[in-house]
Structures are given as structure tokens and as C-alpha cells.
């Protein structure tokens, strides 16, 4: 297939009327073309958190707010009770969740790879975007991607200080981190859905049917 590589690049260069020694500086050209101007973005008047929750709800997510990490389990238990979702839970192996106390009757497993039969999974978001009401998950040992996709119900936890305005802010924030980009960076806006049958919106196509967020702080 090496031949194909050379041939495609040759054809592309010919189409662009490049000769062997033309010097190309795409980064400067990009600045002149558009990048030095600020891109139009959605704006809003309300507070960042309010914008976030409004968009999150618009995408069919539900949420509650607690004051500290210690309250996460309480909020999760309340949610499961309220929704009649049983007492079984799989947790991501995240330090924030290590020390949580759960009621005795709850079966809580800390997992590396989600059990396909599970119904409720809980994991920590790495950031969130107010613009669109989106949660950002960083796949890895602390947040198995399977938790966010195989669960019937996905509970997410977000420390409030990780909420940013726009998607670009997420890139600015995460680009600085070691190991960026992870294998999968999942931007999740509400539960799974499909409109493939007669344009009728139906939640829970392949991923979670419900997405519940616990805001911390």
C-alpha cells in the first residue's frame, strides 16, 4: 500500500500545483485565512452553571447538586431510590470515589471493565461545557469507557470547578495534561437516543437510557 500513499500524495500535490521545492507554511496561511479572527460562538446572559443545566436538561439529562465529594454516595442513593432502580452499582476506580460510604444493603463494585449485565454505572467527568450541556469523559483506568456506554443508567459526577464555557476551553484545559489525547475522549450530551423510526425521538438506543449528573461544590 506504500505505492498508494506516494501516488495519492503525488496526485494531491499535482492538483494543488506544487512543485518539488515549493515551500508551504500552512500555519501562517491558516492565520491569514481565518484563525486570527475569533470564531462566532453561542453566547448567553445567564450564569455559566445556569446555562449548563439548562442545556443539559434540554438534552434530557437530570441532575442534582451536593456540597462536597462526601455527599456523592448519598445523592446517588437518593436518585436510585427515587427512580426505583435497585441497589446495585458499578463504580469507576477513581480516587474521588474510593472513600465513599454506601448503605449496607447496596452492592457496590469498583470495576475496570463494565460488566455487560450491569444496569447502573457511576463515573467522574473530566470537564463539562456550558455552551452545550456536555460532559467530557477521559477513557482510562479511572474512567472505563464501557461504564458510560454499556450501563442502562449512567450516573456522572462533576466537580463544579471543571465546568468551562465553550468546547475550545476544554481543549485549552486538556491539551496541557499528560497523556492527552487519551484513547477516547467522550463528549456526552444527554442519554443515548435515536429518531430512526419515523423521526420519533426515543431514548436509550444503544447507550444509557438515562443520564443523571451529580454536581459537586
Amino acid at each position: 500500500m506504500n505505492h498508494a500513499r506516494e501516488e495519492i500524495l503525488r496526485r494531491v500535490r499535482r492538483a494543488l500545483k506544487r512543485d518539488a521545492d515549493s515551500v508551504v507554511d500552512p500555519d501562517t496561511a491558516r492565520d491569514t485565512a481565518y484563525a486570527s479572527e475569533r470564531a462566532p460562538r453561542p453566547t448567553w446572559d445567564e450564569k455559566r452553571l445556569q446555562r449548563f443545566t439548562e442545556r443539559f436538561e434540554a438534552a434530557a439529562g437530570t441532575w442534582c447538586r451536593v456540597s462536597g465529594p462526601g455527599d456523592i454516595s448519598g445523592a446517588a442513593v437518593d436518585f436510585l431510590h427515587g427512580a426505583g432502580l435497585g441497589q446495585k452499582l458499578q463504580l469507576a476506580a477513581h480516587p474521588m470515589l474510593d472513600t465513599l460510604r454506601w448503605p449496607d444493603q447496596f452492592k457496590v463494585a469498583c470495576v475496570q471493565r463494565a460488566d455487560p449485565g450491569l444496569s447502573v454505572g457511576l463515573s467522574i467527568a473530566e470537564a463539562a461545557i456550558a455552551e452545550t450541556g456536555t460532559l467530557v469523559f477521559w477513557s482510562g483506568p479511572r474512567a472505563p469507557a464501557t461504564l458510560a456506554f454499556l450501563s442502562e443508567v449512567h450516573i456522572a459526577v462533576l466537580p463544579l470547578e471543571w465546568l468551562v464555557d465553550h468546547m475550545e476551553d476544554v481543549w485549552t484545559l486538556l491539551r496541557k495534561r499528560d497523556g492527552f489525547p487519551p484513547r477516547a475522549l467522550n463528549l456526552v450530551t444527554g442519554p443515548s437516543r435515536t429518531a430512526d423510526v419515523e423521526q420519533t425521538m426515543q431514548l436509550g438506543a444503544h447507550g444509557p437510557r438515562r443520564l443523571h449528573l451529580i454536581l459537586v461544590g
Binding site: R55, T134, G140, P181, R183, A184, N186, L187, V188, G190
Partner: peptide, 14 residues
């Protein structure tokens, strides 16, 4: 504004 799942995939599992 954004589809429910937007994913950036980079390389195989680490």
C-alpha cells in the same frame, strides 16, 4: 447544538 455522543478517538488502547 451537539449530537449526544461526540468522540475523539486517538490510537489503540494504552
Amino acid at each position: 447544538d451537539l449530537s449526544a455522543y461526540t468522540t475523539l478517538v486517538t490510537g489503540p488502547r494504552r
